[in-house]
Amino acid sequence: MHLVYPAVLSSLLFCVGVYGVLARRNAILVLMSVELMLAAVSLNLVAFDVWLGDEVHSGQVLTLFLIALAAAEIGVGLAIVLLVHRERGSSAVDRLRALADRDGNEPDRAGPEPGPEGAASRETTTT
C-alpha cells in the first residue's frame, strides 16, 4: 500500500481537528475535536510502524499508550468542564475570559458569580 494514503488521511484528519478546536464554542465539542487530532496522530504512528516493520512495535505500542492517555485526558477534561459549568453556568469557551487583560478597576465580568440566579441568567444566553 502506498504510504501517502494513510499519511494524507492523518494530515487531513488532524487539520479537521484543528478546525474543530478553533471553531467550536462548546467545551465538550472542543474535547471531541482534540480526540480527532489524537486519532490522526495514532493513524500516523500505526502507518509508519507498519511501514518500517519495527521489531519492537514502538509505533503501535505508543498508539496504545496514546489511547489510554486520551481516555485519561477525556476524563479529567470532562471533570473540569463540568466544574466550570457548575461554577459559571456555561461551558462556552469564548465566554470564559477571566484571563483577559483589563484595567484593575474594571469589574471582573467573567468572575465567579455565586448564587443560583447568576447561573440561571447566564444559562439563558449560553445554552
Binding site: N26, A27, I28, L31, M32, E35, I74, G75, L78, V81, L82, H85, S91, E123, T127
Partner: peptide, 12 residues
C-alpha cells in the same frame, strides 16, 4: 463519557 458530559452540561 462525552455523551455523559453533554448531558451533564445540559446540552440541547
Amino acid at each position: 463519557l462525552l455523551l455523559f458530559g453533554l448531558m451533564l452540561t445540559r446540552a440541547p
